[in-house]
């Protein structure tokens, strides 16, 4: 098997995640979709690392994980505080930016 298959898998997962961001309304699920996209890119990075034979790709994936962790912490905090004030986790309910 060619390791490129891992890349196909990553592309597929990334696409699913991106579609999920657009389709789902629950902010938490939306966040999960973002996580899925990050994971897909991590997979791609790890695969590239293997293809090229050096560890830089893995380092990059590692940093991506750190950033994802930070992002999740802040993002969930935002969701919690929005839920507290608006009693809803739906992103469609927060459309105050509309003119």
């Amino acid at each position: 098997m060619n390791p490129v298959n891992y890349l196909y898998l990553a592309a597929l997962l990334f696409t699913i995640g991106a579609s999920g961001v657009v389709i789902r309304r629950n902010a938490i699920v939306l966040f999960m979709c973002v996580e899925l996209m990050l994971n897909a890119s991590n997979l791609a990075l790890v695969t590239f690392s293997r293809l090229h034979g050096n560890l830089d790709g893995q380092i990059l994936a590692f940093f991506t994980m750190v950033v994802a962790a930070a992002e999740v912490v802040v993002g969930l905090a935002i969701i919690v505080s929005i839920f507290r004030t608006r009693h809803s986790a739906s992103v469609d309910d927060s459309n105050l930016m509309k003119l």
Partner: peptide, 29 residues
């Protein structure tokens, strides 16, 4: 794929910590 460290981190940090954080928030909401 030979990324042993990342594999373990993925299980511990992602599946173990981040997903549980998600579940907490889901329960909260």
């Amino acid at each position: 794929q030979g990324a042993v460290f990342l594999g373990v981190v993925q299980i511990v940090v992602y599946t173990g910590a981040i997903m549980m954080l998600f579940l907490f928030v889901v329960m909260l909401v």
